[in-house]
């Protein structure tokens, strides 16, 4: 399992009701079900992912979260998770609002665009960074809303979200934790209203 998902798992309590926005093939929810007995529901738009999630016994609803989540009642989930999807959304700020309307807590992970490799790439080559983590060219990428750790925290302040937990993943853990905006490849936030 991806490192950010391993971390998120530790933040979810036994038996929680979890909505996973962009649940992929359902691996994470299946894992949570087996270890935490969560009641999970995934949202996904990729046909193959949906079939694979169903085969794993994960409930998945085919729905594009960018087109709204108003079919989910207020505070109907304990936790709403969105792992590595923030940057592909047309309206990431609106989806964050919706996450905290639907769930008591939101857990968000995203790639940190201010990681030093990105900075070096951009400043020395003058080209949009392409790397193992961001393998797409600028003109053909699902990632249309990259942000940095600082950007995300600023947005949370602006919206009045409380950051309850924060964890950073990087090549060197202590560096990522100490200077996240420079050394974290992936940021993980637990937020509430």
């Amino acid at each position: 399992m991806r490192l950010d998902l391993t971390q998120i798992k530790q933040w979810i309590h036994q038996g929680a009701k979890v909505l996973d926005l962009g649940c992929g093939d359902g691996e994470f929810l299946a894992n949570l079900r087996d270890s935490h007995e969560v009641q999970g529901l995934g949202l996904e738009i990729d046909a193959d992912n949906i079939t694979q999630a169903l085969a794993k016994g994960i409930d998945v609803v085919e729905q594009n979260m960018d087109k709204g989540l108003d079919n989910f009642p207020d505070q109907s989930f304990d936790v709403v998770v969105m792992a590595h999807a923030l940057q592909v959304l047309h309206y990431p700020d609106k989806v964050l609002d919706e996450m905290l309307r639907i769930g008591r807590e939101g857990i968000v992970t995203f790639p940190n665009f201010a990681h030093w490799r990105c900075r070096v790439h951009l400043s020395t080559r003058g080209r949009m960074p392409v790397s193992k983590f961001m393998p797409h060219s600028w003109y053909d990428t699902p990632n249309i809303h990259f942000c940095t750790v600082k950007d995300f925290e600023a947005l949370c302040r602006q919206k009045g979200f409380r950051i309850k937990r924060r964890e950073m993943v990087g090549e060197t853990s202590w560096l990522a934790r100490t200077w996240p905006n420079l050394f974290a490849t992936t940021a993980i936030f637990k937020i509430t209203r």
Partner: peptide, 15 residues
């Protein structure tokens, strides 16, 4: 699907 979600039932949906 949405009625089932609102009723807190286990539901999957494919289009």
């Amino acid at each position: 699907t949405n009625a089932l979600i609102a009723a807190n039932r286990a539901v999957s949906y494919a289009e």
